[in-house]
Computed example of a mutant assay.
Amino acid sequence: MGVRAGIVVCITSFLLGSLFTNWIADSLTLWKSPVTDEHLWTAATYYSILAKGPIEAWFFLAAIVATGGITILWSLRDLEASNVMFDGGSVFLFGTTVAMYLYSVLPSVFESFDSLPAHQLKDPFPRSLRGVTLELASNNLICSVALTGVLALQAGRSWAERSDNDDDEEFEEVETDGTRSRAKTPDPRTVTEKETERAKS
């Protein structure tokens, strides 16, 4: 695996791990049945903590995402067949994740969960927040699947490049062996001419 592919895999794994931390909230709203008001309040409290988090953390995350996107696009510039297929798919999935977070996830977190009303876990959950909370869990799941796809495509690219290198080495070995065997086999016409000259002498 090359340096660029290694950077993409490391950044994608980091982002995927960051998304998995949302499982604290998403598991209560996405995989629990029935979804109770207590589950919704717990998830909303988690997202409220994220919304009030330090702005430096979001800048750091943005820098990581930008580095990953630039690295994938840089690999795509080579225009090799494997790069176009694997890195093209990676760009699409990575871009889909970024777009979903910019236009759906982050606006929902900052607009809806910046300030929650005073409540107890058993209190009725506001209907205006119910749909937003459930949608956040679904969007996080979609982004996790997309980033997993990026890892799968990068693994496929690495395997394809390794197979190409193995085929090239085998071809070079066959060419070298063929050259040696041709050098060892004498030309029949040369042998006949030498025998004729010896007979005349």
Results as ranks from 00 to 15, higher is better:
residue 55 I to R: 00
residue 131 G to T: 14
residue 99 A to S: 09
residue 193 E to W: 04
residue 142 I to T: 08
residue 25 A to N: 10
residue 62 A to L: 14
residue 97 T to F: 03
residue 89 G to I: 11
residue 56 E to N: 12
residue 195 E to P: 03
residue 18 S to M: 14
residue 119 H to V: 13
residue 66 A to L: 07
residue 164 D to K: 15
residue 143 C to A: 15
residue 118 A to S: 14
residue 67 T to H: 02
residue 160 A to R: 12
residue 88 G to V: 09
residue 104 S to I: 13
residue 151 L to E: 02
residue 77 R to F: 02
residue 174 V to W: 00
residue 193 E to G: 05
residue 58 W to P: 01
residue 185 T to S: 06
residue 37 D to S: 10
residue 40 L to D: 04
residue 24 I to A: 00
residue 179 T to Q: 13
residue 188 P to S: 06
residue 166 D to Y: 04
residue 197 E to P: 01
residue 159 W to D: 08
residue 66 A to W: 00
residue 94 F to H: 06
residue 46 Y to M: 12
residue 53 G to F: 12
residue 48 S to A: 11
residue 99 A to P: 00
residue 130 R to K: 05
residue 82 S to F: 13
residue 90 S to R: 13
residue 120 Q to M: 14
residue 54 P to A: 05
residue 123 D to C: 11
residue 194 K to A: 13
residue 7 I to R: 00
residue 62 A to I: 08
residue 6 G to H: 08
residue 180 R to Q: 06
residue 121 L to E: 02
residue 127 R to H: 09
residue 187 D to S: 14
residue 93 L to M: 11
residue 192 T to K: 07
residue 57 A to G: 04
residue 33 S to P: 00
residue 186 P to Q: 10
residue 15 L to N: 05
residue 120 Q to C: 14
residue 44 A to E: 04
residue 149 G to T: 04
residue 166 D to P: 02
residue 200 K to H: 13
residue 193 E to D: 10
residue 185 T to V: 09
residue 78 D to P: 01
residue 40 L to S: 11
residue 150 V to K: 02
residue 49 I to T: 12
residue 191 V to Y: 01
residue 133 T to V: 09
residue 33 S to H: 07
residue 192 T to W: 05
residue 164 D to P: 01
residue 145 V to H: 00
residue 31 W to S: 04
residue 179 T to C: 11
residue 82 S to P: 01
residue 64 I to T: 14
residue 119 H to G: 11
residue 26 D to S: 13
residue 126 P to V: 12
residue 181 S to F: 05
residue 143 C to V: 08
residue 21 T to S: 08
residue 34 P to W: 06
residue 176 T to P: 02
residue 190 T to Q: 07
residue 199 A to R: 13
residue 53 G to C: 10
residue 84 V to N: 03
residue 172 E to L: 05
residue 58 W to D: 05
residue 48 S to F: 05
residue 176 T to Y: 00
residue 136 L to W: 06
residue 169 E to L: 09
residue 23 W to E: 02
residue 74 W to K: 11
residue 48 S to R: 10
residue 101 Y to G: 15
residue 197 E to D: 14
residue 184 K to T: 11
residue 10 C to F: 07
residue 107 P to M: 06
residue 116 L to P: 12
residue 174 V to T: 00
residue 83 N to K: 10
residue 47 Y to L: 12
residue 78 D to Y: 07
residue 67 T to M: 09
residue 20 F to S: 07
residue 81 A to G: 01
residue 86 F to A: 14
residue 107 P to K: 08
residue 182 R to Q: 15
residue 201 S to R: 12
residue 149 G to S: 03
residue 94 F to V: 04
residue 91 V to D: 05
residue 7 I to T: 07
residue 95 G to D: 10
residue 170 E to V: 14
residue 51 A to I: 07
residue 73 L to E: 06
residue 182 R to F: 15
residue 105 V to W: 03
residue 122 K to Q: 13
residue 68 G to I: 13
residue 199 A to C: 09
residue 110 F to T: 15
residue 13 S to G: 06
residue 106 L to W: 08
residue 146 A to P: 02
residue 162 R to K: 08
residue 181 S to Q: 12
residue 164 D to I: 15
residue 125 F to H: 12
residue 162 R to C: 06
residue 108 S to H: 03
residue 164 D to N: 11
residue 82 S to H: 10
residue 159 W to I: 05
residue 168 D to M: 08
residue 81 A to M: 07
residue 152 A to C: 13
residue 56 E to L: 15
residue 125 F to Q: 12
residue 127 R to F: 08
residue 189 R to G: 02
residue 42 T to M: 06
residue 20 F to G: 02
residue 153 L to C: 11
residue 94 F to M: 10
residue 12 T to Q: 04
